[in-house]
Simulated assay, not measured.
Amino acid sequence: MTPIQINIKHLRLLKKLSQERFSEELKCTRSMIGSYEEGRSEPPIERLIDLSNYFNIPIDILVKNDLRLAKDTSFIEIGSKRVLFPITVNENNEDLIEIIPAQASAGYLAGYADPEYIEQLQKIKLPFLPTGTHRAFPIKGDSMLPVKDGSFIVAKFVEDIQDIKNGRTYIVLTKDDGLVYKRVYDKDADTLILSSDNRFYNPYEVKKDQILELWEFTCCINTQEYKAEELKLSSIMNMFQELKVELESINIQNKT
């Protein structure tokens, strides 16, 4: 069986359509749909375009990938098309977490929508995670202390940007900056503010339509042990940050 014949039947059933009803939607005969699904004939390019437009899925995904594990929630919007959002499972049908390696994180912007790229990533299982689709992302630099350089943030995929919780931390994939880990605030209907916990880095604004993926923090995996002086430094920084918030609050009260 070829992917296209498998996918036509699977996607048709996802939409709860009979062959007859589906043929009416595509303006062709029921026997033609049957021949595609049974592998007796291959759809010509014109029909592949029709199928791509109907399911809103790129042609290359329809003809190259077995979508039988895909549900409606397995697809995400990329521009005007839906692309497959791979969900990897083990032999017990348990969800696995893809790990974005540090040396390949720069390539994630090019490969995040490519099922073949995602399938090649290393995978682990963390049984304590809540339900949802998770990935592990490498952290670089010191903008989100006390999270150390070289740590991994395990985060849950956010399907709707409107579900952002003000002040929570997220892995954000944007067209211009690639992957960043920041504390996120909803400024208005069109704009988010991305803020670092390390106050040496200034917050900045990002338009929501520039965001390609959003992942909410679930847990952190440190790959190095903290030194005692690092913990002290982190505590001192947190104290100063809290003090700044208190001073700002006092200033606001004085102005009113």
Rank of each mutant, 00 (worst) to 15 (best):
N166G: 12
I171D: 00
D149G: 13
C220M: 12
F128Y: 11
D197G: 09
V154C: 09
Y201W: 12
L145N: 12
I193Y: 02
D160Q: 10
G132H: 15
E205P: 02
D163R: 12
T218A: 14
V180D: 01
S196Y: 05
Q162F: 00
E116N: 06
T191R: 11
F152P: 09
F157W: 06
F137M: 01
I161R: 02
W215G: 05
I211E: 03
P115N: 11
R135M: 14
P130H: 07
Q224E: 11
D209C: 10
P130A: 15
E116L: 04
Y181N: 04
L212H: 11
F157K: 05
A228T: 07
K227M: 12
E119V: 02
E213I: 01
T218Y: 01
S196G: 05
R135N: 01
K148R: 15
G150F: 04
T133C: 04
K207I: 07
Q210T: 04
D163H: 07
K165T: 09
L121N: 05
A228D: 11
Y201C: 06
P115E: 10
E216N: 10
T133K: 14
D160E: 13
R199E: 04
T191Q: 12
K156L: 09
Q120W: 14
A189T: 03
R199F: 06
V147K: 06
D142V: 01
R168Q: 10
L173F: 08
V206K: 09
E159L: 11
F152R: 05
D176M: 06
D197C: 12
F157Q: 11
G167K: 04
